[in-house]
Every structure is written in structure tokens, then in C-alpha cells.
Simulated assay, not measured.
Amino acid sequence: MALIINANLSDKVTEYITNKIIKMEYKPGDRIVESKIAKELKISHSPIREALRLLERSQLVEHIPRKGVYVTELVESNVESLFEIMTELLVLVGKKTIKKADDNDIKQITSIVERAFSAAKVSANEDYYNNVIAFGIFCLSVCKDTLLEQIILELLPSIQRILYLSFTAHENNLSEGALLLVKGATAISERAVDQTEILLRKWLSLEMVNAINGLKAGHLLKHSPITA
């Protein structure tokens, strides 16, 4: 596969590697081989190294001195922490969406969530995942808060990775989560701030449990290290 060359090649390479990590083509603990990627994309090593530096900031990869770059292992305590942080951030997104969304925005939110619910009913896991991510990104765009967007987008690849792996490894409760999303979208359309927060927290709590159980079922989760 040759990558189309453009002015921002490192971003394209970052997206390419990110998708491979999210979709488990590069598994936790796998080494990222620069020469292999360079051959696949028919590019030099320079944009690959820059992409790996960006991915290290997103905690998708880690550089081990004298050994190379490896896909970050999934640790239970880190997954829990990520969900806790994203919960607070997404509650803020929900509140700002209610404040700034117009009628067309509400229609778009409702449409995305309806597609997610339809996908969940037929266990179309990847479609469900795509629409869940689309729902979050669209609401974030409605907020028009550049600082909030910057913070969330830095964490987004890690949450995408966990949600994709958990949805594809563990099919139970997709409809339950999708129903909470539908109720949340209704609360947003009714400008019900408190109800939106309650439903977002309930949905994210459910998805954290599903993620941990799904990752454990797929033998993809390491136990948190024991500290003294």
C-alpha cells in the first residue's frame, strides 16, 4: 500500500499506525518496525519517527531504550483512570452542547445516536463503535471550545482503542449502552442538563465495565501492578 504524499505526511502516518493499533493489527506489546512501515507506505523513516513521537504522547506506544518502540500494554488501573477522566470531560461537553446546539445540531445528534442504536440491535459492532465516536466528536465540535477540544483529542486515540477492542471482543450489553445514548440524546434535545449528566455518567460507567470485561475475555488486559 502506498500512502498519498501531502504536506502533512507525519499526520497521515500517525493515523495509519493508530488505526492498526485500534483494530489490533498491532497488538499490545508488539514492536513497531519502522522499516516495515516505510516499505508498506513507500516513504522515508523521518515521518514515521515523527508519527511515533506523536503516538507516544497519546500513550499508544512507548519507547524502550535500546529495544525500540512497542505498542503500549493495556493495564486495568489505566483503563479505569482513562474512563474517570473522560467522564468528567464528556459531562462538560454535554453541558456545553446543550448551551450552544441549534435545532440542526440536535437533529444531527439524534440521527447519529439512532444509527448507533440500530447497529447495536443487530450486533454490528464496528458500526456501533463508529457512530459512538461520531456522536462524541460531533458534540465536541458543537461546543466550540478549542482548549476542551485539544485536551479530549489528545486522549481520544486511547479511548478509541479501548472501546473498539471491548466492542469487538464482548457483544453483550451493546443495546443497553445504546439505549442510554438514545436517552442522553433526548435529554440534550430537551435541554435537560441534570438528566444529561446522569445518563452520560451511567453510560460511561457501563462502558467501563464492558471494556474491562471484554478486554479480559480477549486476554488483552494486564493486572494493575501491586504497589507497596
Rank of each mutant, 00 (worst) to 15 (best):
A2W: 10
L3A: 00
I4N: 02
I5C: 05
A7P: 03
A7T: 12
D11Y: 09
K12G: 05
T14S: 12
I22N: 02
Y26T: 04
I37Q: 04
K39T: 12
K39R: 13
L41W: 01
H45Y: 11
H45A: 11
S46T: 15
P47E: 02
R49L: 08
E50C: 02
A51I: 00
L55V: 09
L55S: 03
E56L: 07
E56R: 01
S58K: 13
Q59N: 15
L60H: 02
I64V: 14
Y70M: 10
V71T: 06
V75Q: 01
V79R: 04
L82C: 00
L89T: 02
V91A: 12
V91Y: 05
L92H: 07
L92G: 03
V93A: 08
K95R: 15
I98T: 03
K99G: 07
K99F: 10
Q108W: 09
I112D: 02
E114F: 09
A116F: 07
F117T: 05
S123L: 13
A124R: 14
D127M: 12
D127P: 00
Y129K: 01
A134N: 12
G136Q: 11
G136A: 05
I137V: 15
I137C: 05
I137E: 14
L140V: 01
C143W: 04
K144F: 06
L147M: 13
E149V: 09
Q150K: 15
Q150A: 15
I151D: 03
L155D: 08
S158P: 01
S158R: 09
I159G: 01
I159H: 03
Q160P: 01
Q160H: 12
L163Q: 05
A169Q: 13
E171W: 07
S175N: 13
S175Q: 15
E176D: 14
G177F: 06
A178L: 10
A178R: 07
L179F: 09
L179V: 11
G184L: 11
A185R: 02
A185G: 00
T186D: 14
S189F: 02
E190Y: 08
R191A: 15
E197D: 03
E197F: 02
W203L: 14
L204S: 06
L204C: 00
S205G: 11
L206E: 01
N210V: 02
N210W: 08
L215S: 11
K216W: 09
K216C: 06
K222L: 11
I226M: 08
A228W: 14
